[in-house]
Amino acid sequence: MIAPALLDRARIVAGPEVGEAAVRGLAAATGRPVERGPVEGPFVYVGASLPDAVRGADLVWFHSVNAGTDALLRSGTWPDGVPLTRTVGRMGERIAQYVLGWVLAECQSVPEFAAQHARAEWRRIDSELVAGQTAVVHGIGRIGSAVATLLGACGIRTVAAARTPRPVPPGFDAVVPADEPVAARWVVAALPLTGATTGYFGADRFAAMGGATFLNVGRGATVDLGALEGALRSGAVGRAVLDVLADEPAVPGDACWRLPRTVVTSHSAGITADEDIVTDFAACLRELSAGRVPALTVDTGRGY
């Protein structure tokens, strides 16, 4: 834990990824100037990556402008004693609306009607009600719970797929072991990327989906893309919506563009706004100044 006196005199440094609007917001929220580049003396760093130039002993706290911190922890050596916090903001709300949008589009046959329009074809297609159908969510933290809450408000039964035993999480109707098959219309992936989740969605897990639509709003490397292609071609997965990929951005010749019945979006489901960075940084600063561990602290050992 940072000594409050040290935090009070620490300078605030913003990385190149932090825009000027966010810099002005950080300065206004904290009452301190926000500097660019390495500085002397104790400092707090706000950014998306940890440059070697700021890894020294003067770094007292790192606040990530992103919710996912796997890239920061990829080297496996986080500086001892340096808290890592992250920006979540309204990401759960944004991602939940993204998922609901695709769920409703599927039940209202939006892709089919768009294709008919392109052919100047008039043909009725029955719609479906979402109420009473089931969605399984893998990754049941802040984002997964937000997805479940919004889907549940539409009458969808939400099931949490948990890798460890636990009570039913907030926003969900039930919890099951992650490997237990569930008859579901939608399977939502909202997992962080760790050693345990890399390639988590492989051939066996896809084979058990029973034709469900698969939506990935977590991390791209949790999915074996070859296994997904096989499941789409066999019908084990009915459709796929992928907001994240292991390698981004996807170039025109990438295999993802050739997946059947799949839509790839440009890692856009939960874009972080400047106000999210400012709000979450200020909240973490208040907690650290009071000697408390912020709720947005990352367990650097677990990776989330």
Score class of each variant (00 low, 15 high):
219 R>N: 10
43 F>W: 03
129 L>D: 15
111 P>L: 04
183 A>V: 02
223 V>M: 03
221 A>G: 01
53 A>C: 05
150 L>T: 12
290 A>I: 14
94 R>N: 08
115 A>G: 07
265 T>W: 14
228 L>N: 05
198 T>P: 00
237 V>Y: 01
168 V>T: 13
139 G>C: 02
179 D>P: 14
195 G>W: 04
13 V>F: 12
144 G>L: 06
260 P>T: 09
295 A>S: 01
149 T>E: 15
87 T>I: 00
160 A>M: 09
16 P>A: 13
108 Q>E: 13
227 A>L: 03
193 L>P: 07
92 G>W: 00
124 R>K: 00
231 A>K: 04
140 I>L: 13
174 A>L: 12
156 I>E: 04
282 A>Q: 06
47 G>M: 02
57 A>R: 13
176 V>R: 14
7 L>S: 02
20 E>P: 04
289 S>E: 04
284 C>Y: 08
196 A>P: 11
290 A>T: 02
141 G>C: 13
132 G>D: 11
8 D>P: 01
243 D>V: 06
298 V>I: 13
232 L>H: 08
248 E>R: 05
68 G>S: 10
303 G>D: 14
274 D>P: 00
141 G>Q: 11
193 L>C: 13
41 G>S: 10
51 P>E: 02
189 A>W: 00
78 W>D: 01
109 S>K: 14
28 A>K: 02
9 R>F: 00
15 G>L: 08
184 A>D: 11
212 A>N: 10
19 G>T: 07
210 G>R: 14
238 G>E: 07
149 T>F: 03
237 V>R: 06
184 A>P: 05
195 G>Y: 12
228 L>E: 01
89 G>D: 03
277 I>L: 02
71 A>V: 13
76 G>R: 14
15 G>Q: 09
145 S>V: 08
275 E>H: 02
62 F>G: 12
78 W>A: 10
233 R>D: 01
133 Q>N: 15
238 G>L: 09
151 L>S: 14
70 D>Q: 03
167 P>G: 06
267 H>N: 07
91 M>V: 00
179 D>Y: 00
72 L>Q: 05
182 V>I: 10
234 S>V: 06
181 P>N: 12
206 F>L: 11
139 G>A: 05
124 R>I: 01
187 V>M: 12
60 V>F: 12
18 V>A: 03
160 A>H: 05
110 V>Y: 10
298 V>K: 09
1 M>T: 11
168 V>N: 09
49 S>T: 13
191 L>C: 05
96 A>M: 06
20 E>S: 04
67 A>H: 03
19 G>Y: 05
98 Y>S: 06
86 R>K: 08
192 P>W: 04
146 A>C: 13
51 P>H: 04
214 F>H: 06
82 V>M: 07
123 R>L: 14
287 E>L: 10
301 G>V: 02
107 C>S: 15
300 T>R: 14
93 E>S: 12
258 R>V: 02
212 A>V: 08
185 R>W: 00
51 P>G: 02
282 A>E: 11
271 I>R: 07
21 A>H: 13
196 A>C: 00
174 A>K: 05
204 D>S: 11
137 V>H: 11
33 P>Q: 07
211 G>Q: 08
262 T>H: 03
12 I>V: 15
165 P>L: 15
83 P>S: 09
2 I>R: 07
